[in-house]
């Protein structure tokens, strides 16, 4: 039988794809209208954009010494934020893991809280914490702690859910309590995953912490805000270059450590 399978009318004319394209196109046009997209204004204003860009191409190298201290502070903030966030995350992760906690109410509540925490963008948390504890790196540390808590607890409980149940059953059969099971059967199995996710979260926190200072939460972002406020784009360029170097160095180091863990 050498017949080619017949396509239905909808398949032949790609009705489904066309309908979806039309929906997306309609939403896109509506969004553009709502946000006042004006290609003409963009083209005429593009000179302004390029002018800032040209100023950035001539970085003010004499500004470099002033950026060292804030950059170090940025890394310190990221380190502490990651540590605090992951310490708080461990108990939450254990309570949210399907294979440890069989009670759906507790698990559901914990997961709901974690989902809520993850919806809040980092800069928004920074704005709130600056209002609470005042301008300074403390606000940044708290922001990063909450931000990494939301992310790392999800990674942690997903890691816990993939472990081998054998040791847990063995310990339970031998009469171990819940705490003993977690301590001797669960944690040794996920230890390497935890360290790896810790480093990964640290990378993300370094990226995040470079802009938190824009709202007064410490670190290199403060210089970003200052230089932009003074229209010193040559200095902004230095800050951006510094951020770039820090992010690349931290990513490389962390990637190498994570590869060793596997």
């Amino acid at each position: 039988m050498n017949t080619i399978p017949k396509k239905s009318f909808a398949q032949k004319w790609h009705i489904k794809a066309l309908v979806w394209t039309a929906i997306v196109l309609a939403l896109f046009i509506a969004s553009c209208a709502m946000t006042g997209v004006d290609v003409g204004a963009f083209l005429t204003g593009f000179n302004q954009f390029m002018q800032i860009f040209y100023e950035m191409l001539k970085p003010d190298w004499s500004y470099v010494p002033f950026t060292i201290k804030p950059i170090i502070q940025t890394i310190q903030m990221a380190l502490i934020g990651t540590l605090v966030g992951s310490i708080i995350a461990v108990p939450f992760a254990v309570l949210a893991a399907r294979n440890i906690v069989t009670n759906t109410v507790i698990r559901g509540t914990i997961r709901f809280i974690l989902n809520l925490v993850r919806t809040l963008p980092d800069l928004m948390l920074a704005a709130v914490f600056v209002a609470v504890v005042g301008i300074g790196p403390m606000a940044g540390v708290l922001t990063l702690a909450i931000f990494s808590f939301g992310m790392i607890s999800k990674l942690f409980y997903e890691a816990i859910e993939t472990i081998d149940m054998g040791p847990i059953e063995a310990l339970t059969a031998a009469g171990a309590t819940k705490t003993q099971v977690v301590w001797f059967a669960v944690l040794p199995q996920v230890y390497n995953h935890f360290l790896s996710y810790f480093l990964y979260t640290f990378e993300i926190n370094v990226r995040a912490s470079t802009i938190l200072g824009y709202l007064g939460a410490g670190g290199i972002g403060e210089l970003l805000q200052r230089s932009l406020g003074q229209f010193r784009y040559d200095r902004t360029a230095i800050v951006v270059i510094g951020t770039f170097i820090v992010v690349v160095v931290v990513d490389t180091l962390s990637n190498q450590l994570r590869e060793r863990l596997q």
Binding site: M34, T35, G36, V37, D38, A41, F42, G45, F46, Q48, F49, I52
Partner: peptide, 9 residues
């Protein structure tokens, strides 16, 4: 913002 002015665009 410098190019097209403040606003959603």
């Amino acid at each position: 913002i410098k190019a097209v002015g403040p606003g959603p665009f």
